[in-house]
Simulated assay, not measured.
Amino acid sequence: MKDVPSPLSDTALVPARVVRAELGGISDMTLWRWLHRPDLEFPEPVLISRRRYWRRQDLETWKRSRFAPRARQKQQGEP
């Protein structure tokens, strides 16, 4: 099955394999660890027939919250 990028809509569901690829090709074990680390605040999946899916909006919100502060620091000339 060919991996097709998910549409950027609020209701789009993204399967675990696509989530892992979008986050730099992380392993399933890394994804599991992130889900079990409360300090990371990684979004909870939706389970459908024992398969994990994430809401596109939740993933995008999490990425902005995790990566935005560093981008702002670099723009302001901070280390």
Rank of each mutant, 00 (worst) to 15 (best):
G25L: 05
Q57R: 09
W62H: 11
E41R: 13
G24P: 12
P15Q: 02
R55W: 03
V14Y: 00
K74G: 07
V19Y: 00
G25E: 03
E44R: 15
W54V: 03
R56T: 02
S49M: 14
R66K: 15
P69V: 06
R52E: 05
R52L: 10
R52W: 00
Q75C: 06
A12H: 01
D10W: 03
R20C: 04
W34K: 07
E60C: 05
P79V: 10
R72E: 12
R66S: 15
R72W: 13
L31N: 02
K63S: 12
D39V: 13
F42P: 02
S9I: 01
L8Y: 08
R37G: 04
R64E: 06
D28T: 15
G77I: 01
M1K: 07
T11A: 01
T30R: 05
R56M: 14
D3R: 07
E78A: 14
R72L: 12
T11K: 06
M29P: 04
H36Y: 11
G25Q: 01
Y53A: 01
P15G: 05
L47F: 11
S27E: 09
E60I: 13
E44Q: 15
S65M: 14
L23R: 04
T61W: 11
R72D: 12
A68D: 13
Q76F: 07
R64D: 09
Y53I: 08
V18M: 13
P15L: 14
P69A: 08
Q57E: 07
R17K: 15
D3G: 01
S65I: 02
I26L: 01
F67W: 11
P38W: 03
R66A: 15
L35H: 06
V19Q: 01
M29K: 14
R56E: 06
R52N: 10
P38M: 00
W34V: 02
V46A: 05
R72H: 11
S49Y: 12
I48E: 15
R64G: 02
P45Y: 08
I48D: 07
L47H: 13
S9W: 04
E44I: 05
P79D: 07
G77A: 03
W32V: 08
Q76P: 02
S9L: 05
P43E: 00
L40W: 06
S6V: 04
G24C: 09
S49P: 04
K74Y: 10
A21R: 15
Q76E: 12
Y53L: 07
S49I: 12
Q57I: 10
R17F: 05
